[in-house]
Write a protein that binds this DNA or RNA. Structure first.
Lengths: 333, 333
DNA sequence: CGTCCTTATGTTTTCGTATTCATACATTAT
DNA sequence: ATAATGTATGAATACGAAAACATAAGGACG
């Protein structure tokens, strides 16, 4: 409410002394420190951050930029970020771009306007060039989705290998006709996962069929519709690998709506290991990302960048894991 | 990067003129406005918000305080808030308290420190007194969960009536033995919904059984376990009303795991109409809250409060709706 | 022709804090 | 006793922008 001057006057000292107390400078006699602390408490004085930040030219705040609050891995990533941030005296703000490029640019203005010291981008509509340009001047870390650029850190999993492992799991169960529901083409992970899918099939000597690779928006209905379409065809896949758990559950329910059984008639694999993957009947096999650790690592990288420590390796990959549940099982045929 | 002085010098005018251009004052000749705009663009000048906000004593930013990013109605509420905020030149920051009281208090310090102009609280660990105290000095709106206090606005649905309607729906289908999975007792909606449940049963002349009212954390597993427990008892409920969709799906799957059929052996009703309610097999009947509109209304109330316009009625209730799906059906017996 | 508005611009102060610089006093060394 | 050091404090300035205040030029009007 009242400025530092008021505290100073009330305590009978100068503003400099109050400021020194606030920032625990050793250059204050114990008795005056006590006196000042006392009046600060009595007046319920809270330093105005705007004044402080203007003076210090840092806010100790960072922003997490996500396409949406329900982005599947967001909640856990946030916890990881949050925990590291708190330990280091930083506050975390979340902003959703709703996949709107203008909106996103507006939010990123917060860097230029000094509202936040740095940004963790979970997924972005920015091009690699735009991103690199921005990262030249500001501290930016990509988490999960990322573009390979020179100036920004990236923390993610090896999406190509993860997809390879997921499809290899299906191959090991005897599946030969495996379809894939990709994510949107705008996402960098999408291409990597398709690559992994192709490599797995090819290394098993199986021809990739273009009609069995379809794009989706990661949503439930999309998976449902694709499963229905595929399974009604004369020759249909016996397994489907999805880029999200929601589409995977859609595939399961779509298959069952046709009277098929999961996993006997068709096996399904999801991605992310979200809570929903357990709510499906049967529960779905999925690729687990270390969501919390991704958040932690991203925040740690950001701190490093904020401190001006130049990390030599800017791309950090954390291990994934195939979580096997009842939606996949050994194939007899 | 560079301050307004630099722009002024480069353009050959005073800082006041540049400031006037920035704030489109009419007191600038068209030619000089052009000239200044030109150099602003050329220098890629962005006004430093800290300076501006310090001077203006407002940030045009607001915070949304939620227990968690995955709070069921959060994503849509956010969109509603966001849309209204944007139209009015406000930026929206989301912070999650993780249901930690200390954390929440720290976040609310952002009000005192002038980092945000106001707060929308989606659910809180604060007591009514703490909240009212804070609302005396700052602009605060409660959205969804709320305490009845004098100084803060509240935007919500009539939880008592919503529960009454949901249970009435079950009664109308012929159910007489209806159990309820409550939310946590800390939530204000919890008591209201239980009240509605009781009123519905009583007005149908049915005795309320204490063992058929159980508390939960809104999570899937909780619903699953409760359904299994109830349905294994000698005399079991034929319908379950849940305070969240996740517990409802848990109930469905728990029942099915015992070989029961939904809705024939047991009907299930959820709450919130989240995306998961459609991912269940069968899809679940649920109580829809106008999530987006709750967000809109909350932001509008906040704007009103920020402008110092005293609304006479501080509690706003929006209409709910029972969405009937396959998890409930007419009972033969 | 001088006074009185308008219009357009420049100069100075202000917001609240941190920091640099200056100062006063006490202590120790010479 | 005086200079040198150290400790504790106050005064003044800087941060960047907005706004209050000041001024100058150009008409309108008596």
């Amino acid at each position: 409410m009242r400025p530092i001057q008021f505290v100073a006057k009330t305590a009978g000292v100068s503003v400099a002394t109050v400021s020194r107390v606030l920032n625990n400078s050793p250059l204050v006699k114990e008795s005056t420190r006590k006196k000042v602390m006392e009046t600060i408490r009595a007046l319920e004085y809270e330093p105005n951050s705007l004044g402080r930040e203007l003076r210090r030219a840092e806010t100790r705040r960072i922003m997490v930029l996500t396409p949406s609050l329900v982005f599947p891995i967001m909640a856990d990533v946030y916890k990881g970020i949050q925990d590291v941030a708190q330990k280091n005296g930083y506050q975390v703000l979340v902003c959703a771009s709703e996949d709107d490029h203008d909106k996103e640019e507006e939010l990123l203005q917060m860097l230029k306007k000094k509202i936040v010291d740095g940004v963790i981008i979970v997924a972005s509509t920015l091009s690699a060039e735009e991103l690199d340009q921005l990262a030249k001047d500001y501290s930016i870390v990509q988490c999960s989705e990322y573009e390979q650029v020179q100036h920004a850190y990236s923390v993610s999993v090896d999406n190509e290998q993860a997809a390879f492992d997921a499809v290899s799991h299906l191959l090991s169960l005897g599946h030969r006709r495996i379809a894939m529901v990709k994510g949107g083409n705008a996402k960098s992970s999408s291409a990597a996962r398709e690559q992994g899918y192709r490599r797995a099939l090819e290394s098993a000597g199986i021809e990739v069929r273009q009609e069995w690779i379809r794009e989706s928006d990661y949503e439930y209905q999309n998976g449902y519709d694709l499963a229905v379409e595929w399974l009604q065809a004369a020759e249909h896949p016996t397994a489907i690998f999805c880029s999200s758990d929601a589409t995977a559950i859609g595939c399961v329910n779509g298959a069952i709506s046709l009277g098929k059984s999961v996993p006997d008639d068709v096996a399904v694999v999801g991605f992310d290991d979200t809570v929903e993957s357990l709510m499906s009947r049967p529960p779905i096999t999925t690729v687990r990302q270390p969501k919390y650790d991704l958040g932690r690592a991203a925040m740690e990288a950001l701190l490093q960048s904020l401190r001006g420590e130049a990390g030599e390796n800017k791309t950090i990959l954390l291990p994934h894991e195939i979580v096997i549940r009842e939606s996949t099982a050994k194939r007899s045929g």
